[in-house]
């Protein structure tokens, strides 16, 4: 194990120790012995969740050594709850980079080029979204129109609807996987674009996964902007799908050319 590896392991140990203390304080502060505790997970169409205990109350139910951590734990808990979407995006991007590395790299390569290439990728993505939306809507219209003939059949309308919803969900999952791969490549491209700015060029040696995560962070921030957020998410989705389709087409063209 090299010195760099040892430092990374040491860093992981430090993070794990800190997180363990936070989790332990959280567990003890909301242990089942306490009289009024807020549920760990709550969903109700009618009632709102019970209020949280005050920090002073929570500090009384933990050992003295952990009492100073309770305010930090409460703040971190609130932040983590609000940042669940951001954490999910980071995790999805990282998962695509690790588990579908080759696909992400080929998609990234397909989106390299000047503004004409970028526009072509974006246009391809918008076209893919348009085709998918039209085909999906038409498929539902055709299916719902044919339900009258199913009514007297052995399946019945509810079962036919459930089968259709299941099939539609499978199609959505497949499109979602392609979108995640494209999103990781798009985030990587965005990070690259950011690091091509003159005063950031000195950090050009940053590892590619960190550049991709920075790009994903920028996309998430853009998503939070009122009004413009929806447009930017649509543009990113279109770019991601366009890059995936372009990569597939480039790969297919090369295969045909080699034969």
């Amino acid at each position: 194990m090299k010195q760099r590896d040892a430092i990374l392991v040491l860093g992981a140990v430090v993070i794990a120790t800190f997180v363990s203390a936070i989790l332990l304080a959280g567990s003890l502060a909301n242990a089942s012995g306490s009289a009024t505790r807020r549920p760990g997970i709550f969903f109700d169409p009618r009632n709102s969740p019970p209020p949280a205990r005050t920090i002073v109350d929570a500090q009384r139910s933990v050992p003295d050594a952990l009492a100073p951590i309770v305010p930090l734990q409460r703040g971190l808990s609130d932040t983590a709850r609000d940042a669940a979407g951001y954490l999910l995006i980071l995790l999805g991007t990282s998962a695509a980079l690790v588990l579908a590395h080759e696909q992400v790299v080929s998609t990234y390569r397909a989106s390299l080029g000047g503004w004409r290439t970028q526009l072509r990728v974006l246009g391809t993505g918008l076209a893919v979204i348009g085709v998918s939306a039209s085909a999906g809507a038409l498929a539902w219209i055709v299916f719902l129109g044919s339900l009258s003939s199913v009514r007297g059949g052995p399946l019945g309308v509810p079962a036919a609807l459930q089968v259709a919803i299941g099939a539609f969900s499978v199609a959505l999952v497949i499109a979602g996987i392609a979108a995640i791969v494209g999103f990781a490549a798009a985030a990587w491209r965005l990070g690259d674009a950011l690091f091509s700015v003159a005063w950031l060029r000195r950090f050009a040696g940053v590892p590619a996964p960190l550049i991709a995560l920075l790009g994903a962070t920028l996309i998430y921030i853009a998503w939070q902007i009122p009004f413009a957020g929806g447009v930017s998410v649509l543009a990113v989705l279109a770019y991601a799908l366009g890059a995936v389709v372009t990569a597939r087409l480039v790969g297919s063209a090369r295969t045909v050319a080699s034969q």
């Binding site: 760990g40 709102s48 969740p49 609130d78 932040t79 709850r81």
Partner: peptide, 22 residues
């Protein structure tokens, strides 16, 4: 309408478990 609440430490633990798994 619906009310939802989740303990943030659960979110934190799930995220760290995901990173460790990756």
């Amino acid at each position: 309408d619906a009310f939802f609440f989740v303990d943030g430490t659960v979110v934190l633990a799930l995220a760290i478990l995901g990173v460790a798994s990756l």
